[in-house]
């Protein structure tokens, strides 16, 4: 595409000049924050269990409460700050999933509730839903064929 430098050679030059991400530090942060979010989930589940709820209800309610916390922290503008430090630690748990739906919903409110919030709400989480649900259907079929 140019006679100056081929793409490979340029890639090398770029690589030499890129700042190195501190993967070790990032991993530690992700571990601590991710673990802490799971601790909160565990605590909620423990409290619910102590109230005598069945284990199935406990699982659903814990999930619901965690989603609420993620959505709430996004709404008040805190979750993105957590994400900046925690990285994968705050993306992977279900609170991160809530964040990925609430963030675009807030962002596109100005375009109205149909073409803004409605249409853009799943712009980040959409692929996760599509492939998550597709995979579970596929696994379900395999399970059915093997065991019935």
């Amino acid at each position: 595409m140019n006679s100056w430098m081929d793409t490979k050679e340029y890639e090398k030059l770029v690589k030499e000049n890129l700042p190195k991400a501190n993967t070790f530090k990032n991993s530690i942060y992700a571990f601590i924050f991710g673990g802490f979010i799971c601790d909160i989930g565990q605590l909620i589940s423990k409290i619910l269990k102590d109230y005598g709820l069945t284990s199935e209800t406990v699982a659903s309610f814990t999930t619901l409460i965690m989603i609420f916390i993620g959505a709430f922290l996004t709404g008040i503008g805190v979750y993105d700050n957590i994400g900046r430090v925690a990285g994968a630690g705050s993306i992977v748990p279900i609170t991160g999933f809530a964040n990925s739906i609430v963030a675009p919903a807030m962002e596109y409110k100005r375009e109205g509730f149909v073409f803004g919030v409605g249409a853009k709400m799943f712009s980040v989480a959409g692929p996760v839903l599509v492939y998550g649900i597709s995979t579970s259907v596929l696994i379900g079929l395999i399970y059915y064929l093997l065991y019935y």
Partner: peptide
Amino acid sequence: ERQYRSPLEQGGQRPLY
């Protein structure tokens, strides 16, 4: 940011470059 990248409130890390 909303045209080129991701919603502002979405939590994540941007590359150092």
